[in-house]
Design a protein around this nucleic acid. Structure first.
Length: 490
RNA sequence: GGUCGGAUGGCCGAGCGGCUAGGCACGGGUCUGCAAAACCUUUUACACCGGUUCGAAUCCGGUUCCGACCUCCA
């Protein structure tokens, strides 16, 4: 593998060397959440994947502008009899302002990601704050002849576009198949009869009277279609051409395919690299509301879900996500999460030991080769599972050096420490989790452990064991080491 | 139905022509007053049937399962 970053490009279906348009600057865009509900596990995956890319590019000294949007303009509900705004629907049901709903779930999303140590993006634009830009883009598309107005709504003319462009080049679909497949299988969504062709998609939608999220436009009081926001906001903040556009695989079609069409139709260039993360399954089944197995991020952290045997920490989740490659499906189960929890702890224990290692005159391992391997793996389309495996290789060395079974020179130790920490904390974004200790508890525990120490010295085992067992029942685990006892909250 | 992807040891999950991935669990061991924790360590694989090759988990063909998208979705 090359020493330069390569990423898999969904557009070309190949792993390509990453060449920024204007180095050292890099522009990247991630399709963020529609804030009509609390964030679920699926949301965490794309956010963590792009966070690692963001961190790695920054580590490589690129100047990255990372844009991650918030979709707070509702899309059509598929299960409603007539088109209705997701956010508007919830707002009406709860007697609150639509923006109140959007804010609530935006906060929840931020809170979940912050706990997972996901860095905030450089810019986080909201769709509702860019209605004007979206209207301007729609105007441009109409002017160029790729969209038409119909009864106050504006639709993108897919067939017209396909005459001179390849509609389907991203998702691998053929326009003929799309036309053939349309029709009987399609749900009768409102406004289908307004379209020239069933494959045409809305750029602007006229609002029905009961619709509460709506804006004025040259065509009607209404709201933007569901693909236009990303085109408008990426254009505004990243320019006519930018480097990376990412999102979940489920957005490949029609969302991203349509984005490409829109952007091309208004004279904007499309991103050079498209990246898509794969989906999450639970106990081998896809995560879906209909299967009643959807898990919210907060539910995972609290353990409050019928499929969860216990709570799993934010770092356990982050580590778990990183242990699988982002382009593979990832299966959640209690067994797998518990394994991740242990593995994460093992890695953290090793990380804590690196600085205090005693150096020798020689080294028993090739630290430079190990370091090179880490970069090669990261450069190979962010092979985080392999990076983690390589870090575990060093974890074993660290333990052996600590146990005086292996030797390391001072300069190698320095490389080991710096590299281990760079990859674990800076690039993978893992952090040691606080045990929840506080000063008062530390004071109490210090006293209790001191009493137990005295009991042990007097070989008063019943008392020593009573303290240990009693604390265990109270949720505190005592760990006896060579240099005395420590504790942690369970 | 159309398009695309996947089937790896008890579990998760890398690898994608020859070299033990890794983590967890299990077993063995070190440590300990006994434990726990921590650390060390052994074993268990590549869905099935053909083919190509000196050599295939890895390439090709077929079979069987599973999944994703085609409709809001990360």
């Amino acid at each position: 593998m090359s020493s330069r970053l390569h990423i898999y490009n969904t557009l070309t279906k190949q792993t390509e060397e990453f060449k920024p348009i204007n180095p050292p600057f890099v522009g990247m865009y991630l399709c963020g959440p529609t804030v009509y509900g609390d964030p679920h596990l699926g949301h965490s995956r794309g956010a963590v994947m792009m966070d690692v890319l963001f961190r790695y590019l920054s580590h490589l000294d690129y100047k990255v502008r990372y844009v991650r949007n918030i979709t707070d303009v509702g899309h059509l509900l598929n299960d409603a009899d007539e088109g209705e705004d997701k956010i508007g629907k919830i707002a009406k049901a709860n007697q609150v302002e639509p923006m109140e709903v959007a804010q609530q779930y935006t906060n929840a999303y931020h809170n979940a990601l912050e706990q997972m140590n996901v860095l905030p993006p450089s810019i986080e634009p909201r769709a509702s704050g860019h209605i004007i830009e979206q209207i301007e883009m729609v105007k441009e598309i109409i002017k160029n002849g790729f969209a038409y107005e119909s009864n106050g709504s504006v639709y993108f003319d897919v067939l017209k576009y396909a005459e001179s462009n390849d509609y389907g080049k991203l998702s691998g679909r053929k326009i003929e198949d799309l036309i053939a497949g349309a029709g009987e299988e399609r749900r009768s969504l409102e406004g289908q009869e307004e379209k020239k062709n069933p494959n045409d998609f809305a750029l602007w939608k006229k609002a029905t009277p009961e619709h509460i999220m709506k804006w004025n436009s040259p065509w009607s009081v209404g709201f933007p279609g569901w693909h236009i926001e990303c085109s408008a906001m990426s254009d505004k903040y990243l320019g006519k051409q930018f480097d990376i556009h990412a999102g979940g695989m489920d957005l490949l079609f029609p969302h991203h395919e349509s984005e490409i069409a829109q952007s091309s139709a208004c004279g904007c260039n499309t991103p050079n690299y498209w990246m898509h993360n794969n989906m999450i399954t639970i106990n081998g089944q896809k995560m879906a509301k209909s299967l009643n197995n959807g898990v919210l991020i907060e539910e995972l952290f609290s353990g409050n879900h019928h499929l969860l045997e216990q709570a799993y920490s934010p770092m356990t989740l982050r580590f778990f996500l990183l242990q699988a490659h982002y382009r593979s499906t990832l299966d959640f189960s209690n067994e797998a999460l518990q394994a991740a929890e242990k593995g994460y702890q093992r890695l953290m224990n090793a990380a804590a030991k690196t600085e205090g290692l005693v150096s020798s005159e020689s080294s028993d391992m090739d630290i430079q080769a190990w370091k090179d391997t880490l970069y090669e793996q990261m450069n190979n389309d962010m092979a985080t599972p392999q990076v983690i495996a390589t870090l575990f290789e060093a974890a074993k060395w660290i333990n052996e050096i600590d146990a005086k079974n292996l030797k390391i020179t001072a300069s190698d130790k320095n490389i080991l420490h710096t590299t281990f920490h760079n990859f674990t904390f800076q690039i993978l974004g893992l952090i040691p989790e606080e045990s929840g200790n506080n000063e008062a508890l530390d004071g109490v525990m210090s006293l209790v452990l001191d009493i137990r120490k005295t009991a042990k010295e007097n070989k008063d085992w019943p008392t020593a064991d009573k303290i240990r067992d009693g604390l265990k029942d109270a949720g505190i685990e005592v760990m006896d080491g060579k240099d005395g006892s420590t504790y942690k909250l369970k």
